[in-house]
Every structure is written in C-alpha cells, then in structure tokens.
C-alpha cells in the first residue's frame, strides 16, 4: 500500500497507539448528507504529538470526536476502522466506550466553561473521574486531585480544589480541565483547540504546560487547531486537513518550512506575520467547499491557481517526494 510510511512503521517495536484507516464520517438528515470526513488514514505512536491543522468546516474536530465516538449516534455514520490502544472503537458498546473515555483516552476542549460542570467544585469533578475509573476511596481520590492541580501548576492548589468553575480565570479553568483529563493517566490525549479562546500571554503558558506534561507522562496527543503558530510550538507531525481529507502530512519542520500542497502554501502565505506591513496579503481566493456537495476530484481545485482539468475530475493520490512527507497534489513528485 502506498501509505505504508504513514500507516505502518515496520521496524518499530511498539504497536501504534492509534490506527485509523480510511475513516469516513457522514451526517445524515432529511435535507442533506454532509460528508464531513472523507477517508482519513493515519497512525500515532505512543508519546507522539500529531497536530491536525485546518480551517472551520475542514473536518478536524469531527475526526477527533470520531476517535472517541462523541458524535450524535443517530445522525452520524462512521466508516473505516478506528483502533485506539489495540481496541476497535467502532465495535464498542456503550459500557466499553464509557470505560475508554476519561480512562485510556481523555479530551480537552476549547471552552472550559461549557466542558466543566458549573454546580460541582473542581476538586469534586477530578475526584469523580478517578473514582469512576479506578474505584479508589474518596480520600485517595481527593489526595490525587490535589496532586493533579499542582501538576498543572495552579497556584494555591489546595484552596482552588474548593472553587467552582466560574470562580476561576480563563487560564486557570483551562488548567483545571487539563487536570481532569489527566486524572486517570490516559495514554492518549485529544485536544480540540484548547488554547484558541485564551489571551496571548496565557495561550503560550498552556501550550508549554501541555508540551511538558506530554513529555513527562509519555502521552500520545492529537491536537486540533487552525493556528499555524500553535502547530509550530507543539507538533511532532502535522496533518493539514481540507474538506475532510488529509491533503498534506509530515514531520513538523518539513510541513511548516517546506509545504508541498498549494493549500498549505496558501495558508502560510495568507497568515499575517511581522514584516508584511504595507504589502498586499496573499489571500486564497474563494471559500472552502460545501460539504453537502463535495466536488469530484481535488476539493481545493476551485480555489487553486495551478488547477488543471485532471484536478477537477480525479482525486489526487497520496504522493511521497520524501519518506514521511505526503501531499495529495498532482504537482508533487513521488
């Protein structure tokens, strides 16, 4: 198979922590079928950080939620195979899923205020998770909750255990949510734009904290963001998503410094950074496609300056000009 370097790593002793093959997610309603994810294949090693980079509607959050089956079951059709820590997630029943969520796999979200329960204290919420998954006593759970708050560097942790979410600032709330996610020492942490709503000076604190915890605890992390700078700070590997597909993926330095796909290049060029004052920003024309009416062929072709007839008729295959660095574009060799 062409994607061998991305999906299987012969020679690595450890089995991949996450193995996703040709995953599709469709949302079906009376009016339309929305093709949110259209064939995503990747694997993640234990202790590796994969950043999925994409704009709104690219399917990055949906992909992340599909790994934990957090999507409304009646309206969602998930296809392909999804394995986490050797278990087939798509075959799990509700009981097995509840064991998985918060146990081996934990998730942090963009808005801690909606992810935390407003009527319980931070300490209660951490302890609840530990008791549910590890069956320890209340006392042991409380002690561990305190350790966790210290782990995420919340000042005067003991006092903060008794705080309700609304009593904390945005940065502390995000730290509290991370401590709940880490409560049962997950092997895999799923992060859905956890720093997007934070101020600049707080965002970098949380990013550095996540990077430190990830290294210390040896967690695998899948981090979804639209922010190129965030990817540059935290990723081992980056996958760029467009219209429900990975259109480029590779080691972070390759993708950030030598992007192959015209969309990734456009994203880099249109991102405002120092030194662009007085120049015209190289914006990508147009807008992403409607996922209810996906174009045949390359989904980026309608916005691409290099598009040819074949781009509009056929989906470009995955190409590897160098091992590990993939792009779905006919202009790329390999």
């Amino acid at each position: 198979m062409q994607t061998a370097t991305l999906t299987e790593r012969p020679g690595t002793a450890t089995a991949p922590l996450v193995s996703v093959r040709d995953m599709t997610v469709k949302f079906v309603s009376k009016d339309a079928t929305v093709h949110a994810v259209n064939g995503v294949t990747f694997s993640l090693d234990p202790g590796e950080v994969l950043v999925i980079l994409g704009e709104s509607g690219s399917g990055k959050s949906v992909s992340l939620r599909a790994l934990m089956r957090l999507l409304p079951p009646r309206k969602t059709q998930i296809g392909g195979t999804v394995q986490v820590a050797g278990q087939d997630v798509l075959a799990m029943d509700e009981a097995a899923l509840t064991d998985l969520r918060g146990g081996q796999v934990a998730m942090i979200f963009q808005e801690p205020m909606t992810a935390l329960d407003p009527v319980f204290t931070i300490g209660q919420q951490i302890a609840e998770t530990i008791i549910r998954h590890e069956g320890v006593s209340r006392q042991a759970a409380d002690a561990r909750a305190l350790e966790l708050l210290e782990l995420v560097q919340i000042p005067s942790a003991k006092r903060r255990l008794g705080n309700y979410p609304h009593e904390l600032s945005g940065g502390l709330r995000q730290r509290a949510m991370i401590s709940i996610a880490l409560a049962c020492r997950p092997k895999l942490l799923l992060a859905d734009e956890p720093t997007t709503a934070l101020d600049a000076t707080v965002q970098i604190q949380i990013l550095l904290l996540l990077r430190k915890l990830q290294t210390e605890l040896g967690m695998g992390v899948i981090f979804v963001t639209h922010d190129l700078g965030v990817a540059g700070e935290i990723a081992d590997r980056v996958a760029v998503m467009y219209a429900g597909r990975f259109i480029e993926s590779g080691p972070v330095s390759e993708v950030m410094l030598r992007p192959l796909h015209p969309y990734t290049q456009g994203l880099m060029n249109s991102t405002v950074h120092a030194g662009l004052r007085g120049t015209r920003l190289a914006a990508i024309p147009g807008a992403p496609p409607n996922l209810a009416r996906l174009p045949t062929g390359c989904a980026f072709a309608p916005r691409c300056a290099y598009a040819e007839d074949v781009c509009r008729s056929e989906l470009p295959t995955e190409r590897y000009p160098i091992p590990e660095h993939m792009a779905r574009c006919i202009r790329v060799d390999g």
Partner: peptide
Amino acid sequence: ALLASRPSMDPAKRMTEPPLTGDP
C-alpha cells in the same frame, strides 16, 4: 511580554519559558 508570546511558526525556534506567568 505580549510581543514575545507570539508563537514563531518555526519549530526550530520553540519557546522554552513563557514570557509572562499568571492571568491578567
């Protein structure tokens, strides 16, 4: 501190210490 908090987009220039601690 605000200016230094901007991520650089270059993975070779990663930050090691946050320029500012705490929230406003």
